[in-house]
Amino acid sequence: NKFNKEQQWATYEILNLPNLNEEQRKAFIDSLKDDPSQSANLLAEAKKLNDAQA
């Protein structure tokens, strides 16, 4: 299913963002699990935070 693929991709991407700390990473991944339909939005937020902390 589409959300499952998006969720897996977003999880992979978030795990590989270098500037997030473990707590932030875990929070994003927990949110992905809670609502896979928000995968794209959550990934965008994670990338923004990652860039802000660069």
Rank of each mutant, 00 (worst) to 15 (best):
E22K: 12
K5Q: 13
K47P: 00
K5R: 03
S31G: 12
P18N: 05
N41W: 15
D35E: 07
A40D: 05
L32T: 02
K47R: 06
L20T: 00
N16A: 10
Q53F: 10
N1Q: 05
L15H: 06
A52L: 12
A27E: 07
K47V: 11
A27R: 14
K2I: 14
K2R: 07
N19K: 04
A54H: 10
A10S: 03
Q7L: 15
Q8W: 09
L42K: 06
P36W: 06
D34Q: 14
K2W: 13
D34I: 08
K48S: 08
N19H: 12
P18Q: 09
A46W: 01
L17A: 01
N16L: 10
N21M: 06
Q53V: 09
K48P: 00
A27H: 10
P36R: 02
A46S: 02
N21A: 09
Q8A: 08
S39H: 15
I14M: 04
A52Q: 11
N16I: 07
A52P: 02
K47N: 07
S39V: 12
S37V: 05
S37M: 08
A52N: 09
A52K: 11
N19Q: 04
E13D: 04
F28W: 02
A27T: 09
S31F: 11
Q24L: 03
P36N: 03
I14Q: 01
I29H: 03
N1V: 03
R25Y: 03
A27D: 09
D34G: 09
Q38Y: 04
K5V: 05
I29R: 03
S37D: 06
K2S: 14
S31D: 07
P18E: 07
L20P: 00
L43Y: 09
Y12V: 04
N41F: 15
P18H: 06
F28A: 02
D35T: 08
Q24M: 04
L42A: 07
Q53M: 11
T11Y: 15
E22P: 12
D35L: 06
F28N: 00
E23D: 12
N50A: 04
A54K: 05
I14W: 02
D34N: 11
A44K: 10
N16T: 07
A40N: 07
A27G: 09
E6D: 10
S37G: 08
D34T: 11
Q38G: 06
A44G: 07
K26D: 05
S31T: 09
S37R: 07
D34P: 02
L17F: 05
D51F: 14
A40V: 12
E45F: 13
E45I: 14
F3T: 14
N41R: 15
P18T: 07
W9L: 13
L15E: 11
A46H: 00
K48R: 12
E45H: 07
Y12F: 13
K48L: 12
E45W: 14
I29E: 02
E13S: 10
A10T: 05
N4H: 13
K26S: 11
Q8I: 12
F3G: 15
A54T: 10
N19G: 04
L42W: 10
E13Y: 13
F3R: 08
K5D: 15
S39Y: 15
A52T: 08
L42Q: 04
E6K: 03
L49N: 02
E6S: 04
L17Y: 04
A40Q: 09
K47M: 11
A27L: 14
L49M: 10
S37K: 08
A46K: 00
L17T: 00
I14R: 00
L15A: 10
P18S: 06
Q7F: 14
Q38P: 01
N1P: 15
I14V: 05
S37E: 11
K33P: 02
N1W: 00
L15R: 07
D30Q: 13
S39Q: 04
A52F: 10
F3H: 15
K26F: 10
K26E: 06
Q53Y: 08
L49Y: 05
N41T: 11
D51G: 08
L42N: 02
F28S: 01
N16M: 07
N19W: 13
E22L: 12
K5I: 04
Q8Y: 08
S39A: 13
K47Y: 14
E22R: 08
D30P: 00
D30M: 15
P36M: 04
Q24F: 02
D51Q: 12
E6F: 14
L20Q: 00
W9F: 12
P18D: 04
K47W: 14
L42M: 12
L17K: 00
